[in-house]
Amino acid sequence: MTTIEFSVNGKPVSVALDNEDTPLLDVLRNDLGLMGTRFGCGLEQCGCCMVLIDGQPEKCCAKPVSSIAGKNVTTVEGLGTPDAPHPLQQAFLDEQAGQCGYCLSGILISAKALLAVNPSPTRTEIALALDGNICRCGSHNRILRAVEKAAAVMRVRA
């Protein structure tokens, strides 16, 4: 049994595991009960499991939890709540940016990472930043509009 400590959405957590190579995604969902980060492929291809690790967007479905000891993880639950939504979440609601919505957690995280380094992205820049996230329903244009809208709101607030 190995104990690994890190922080999730600003709170310290400690997990004890038989298998220290357990993917971070499994730990988030099965040990910490944070179901917002979704399983899509387990192959770091589709982006459903995107989280921020020390501020960097990373797919966590194949990332051994041991590799993030001492680091800060942000998941979609750390963005906002219905009472206090993150500007991205508000913009996604406003634009009805999604169909099945399974990809949205990862897309919101990728978008947050983009806006942290590029507060005024073009449509092309947003699209390229989201190329690591697959949307199968075809909500792409709504999602791009929502990110543009959130960026504008965040620029005013900044």
Binding site: M35, L93, G101, Y102
Partner: peptide, 21 residues
């Protein structure tokens, strides 16, 4: 009238929206 989807908020706030959860 365009009506906001009742199922979308849970998917935007990372709730237990899916059977997988």
């Amino acid at each position: 009238q365009s009506s906001a989807r009742s199922d979308l908020p849970a998917k935007i706030f990372g709730d237990d929206a899916f059977i997988h959860d």
